[in-house]
Amino acid sequence: MVVAEQKPFEEILEMIKAYDRLIVAGCKGCVAVCAAGGEKEVRFLASAIRTARKMEGREVEIKEVTLERQCDPEYVEQLRAFVGEYQAILSIACGVGVQYLAEHYREIPALPGVNTTFVGGAEKQGLWTERCQCCGNCVLHLTGGICPITRCSKSLLNGPCGGSSGGKCEIDPEVPCGWQLIIDRLKELGEFERRYLEILPPKDWSTSRDGGPRKVVREDLMK
């Protein structure tokens, strides 16, 4: 999932200070699962904003709404009926959601209430970690199912480097060395000799961000 975390309240309050009628828009997708932008977070953020405004003796009208997804036009369209009554939309979906709202509703600004952080998963309740950098050219079949691009701090394709010590990365003693993880996993799978000795060629980064904004086309699904 796309993992996000709420921006500091001070930053959000500064961002919305010019507005007295506001939509706080959540998303029931990834950001709901990582407790940053779902229905519950919409309620909490709206309450926090109202509280802060009451302290200034200044009223704010907030419409609380949580869309099924903010990354699909048909759901984004659901704000159309009432968007004209408000001055801004504070979206706590990922960066995609904020941009979709901005593209759809051109009369009022769409503001980000969260920082979109990474593509990852939950390790346990309250802890999410990064797993994928969306390089667009997956090599997990060669590296025991552990991503060298994400888990190695240097994104080395043929690791580890000299900074690996006791299974940890030199950037932080808490961070496991991605290549140590790969080697351990390849040994578990009995693929170490075959895979590790194979030198991976330089990666074609044109599928990553180097080629500008990317797109996926599925003509069979198009109408």
Binding site: K40, R43, F44, S47, A48, R50, T51, K54
Partner: peptide, 13 residues
């Protein structure tokens, strides 16, 4: 108790 219960009390003054 959820965090919203605590915050709403303060919102209510």
């Amino acid at each position: 108790i959820d965090t919203i219960h605590l915050l709403r009390a303060f919102e209510g003054g």
